Simulated assay, not measured.
Amino acid sequence: MKHLRDQGISIGGSGQKRKLKNIGYYHGYKGFRFVGDSSKRLPIDDFDQIASLHAMDMQIKTLFYPHIMTIETALKNYTLEAVLSHAKSEDFDDIYRSCLTAYRGYRPGTDDYKKSWANRLRLRQTVDGLISREQDKKPFFKHFRDQGRAIPIWAIFEAMTLGEFGNFYACLDRPIKSSIVADLGMPSQFDSEALLLSIIFSLKDLRNAIAHNAIVSDVRFKTGGISKNVGKLLKNETGIDSVNFSDITDYVILVVYLLGLLRIPKTDRKRLISGYEGILLRYKKELPRDIYGSIVRTETQNKLKLLKKYVTKS
């Protein structure tokens, strides 16, 4: 508390002391003193502003979580169905030989060919490591191991992180990827096979931030760039321009779009949008304009208006 006061932030009393202890020093000050990176310092002068930023971030994570889980589970199941249909086997070794052959789509000897081949080898190591890591934690792993049977692909998928699943999808032969995006109903005029991979990794970053209670409201969780073509896809599908994932609203748009592909009812998708709007409305009232405006872009309301229109028509 003394350090915060030395930084020009008003804080005092047993109530704020307890709140700071509950939030933690990182979330209570270090995490919310800037937006995106440390060069973009927020003009915070009162601990109540920090508490509001923290509460806003927590509510956004709570809103996202069940929808991210729904999408992750569904994408794994769509992929699993396509793989089993192609391989005619649930044994990973059979699938490795017949399905995880993306490298064949490149000319031998090229950098892309070598990179894809190396990714395939790493995937083999990842799956072996996953089985070793989970063999005593997952009852179904132990069941198959103790019976001397190969662990089936569906069990491996159950234990895969979203990032590991993304690497699995990346290694699939293109016709299998095509059957997945066709099943989802993604548009054929885009390279939807490649876009789905970019989407999976963008969701992986958001999911990990939520799971580890990292800050999400300023999208600092992004570990890499997201293909500009994802924004073009969303503009084509929803009519919303300037989706570049520089703010959390764009992730709301992506999640709503994916839930639509999964045929999640309109009422559920609208509830996600209205829930997000409610969070923004509350903290627009609580936070000073310059702090709120540093996190929530001026075009947010128009994007959400168009998103609701898209859901209504879809």
Rank of each mutant, 00 (worst) to 15 (best):
K2P: 03
H3Y: 15
H3C: 06
D6C: 06
G8P: 11
I9K: 06
K17W: 15
N22K: 14
N22I: 08
Y26H: 08
H27Q: 09
G28I: 02
F32L: 12
F32G: 05
R33M: 13
S38R: 13
K40P: 05
I44A: 08
D46R: 15
D46Q: 10
F47N: 12
I50D: 04
L53V: 04
L63W: 04
P66Q: 07
T70G: 06
I71R: 00
T73K: 15
E81L: 11
L84M: 10
L100T: 03
A102Q: 10
G105L: 06
T110S: 07
D111G: 12
K115Q: 11
A118P: 01
V127W: 03
L130E: 03
S132Q: 12
E134F: 13
P139R: 02
K142C: 09
G148S: 11
R149E: 00
A150S: 03
I151M: 00
A155T: 03
F157N: 06
F165M: 13
F165K: 09
N167D: 15
Y169K: 09
S178L: 06
A182G: 09
D183A: 14
D183W: 09
L184I: 04
Q189I: 08
D191G: 00
S192V: 04
I199T: 06
S202R: 08
A209M: 05
H212R: 08
N213H: 11
G225M: 01
S227M: 07
G231N: 06
K232I: 07
K235R: 12
G239K: 13
T249M: 08
L254G: 10
L262C: 04
K270Q: 14
S274I: 12
Y276W: 09
R282W: 05
K284Y: 12
R289D: 15
I291V: 15
Y292I: 07
R297M: 05
K303T: 10
L304C: 06
L307A: 08
Y310D: 04
Y310F: 10
T312M: 12
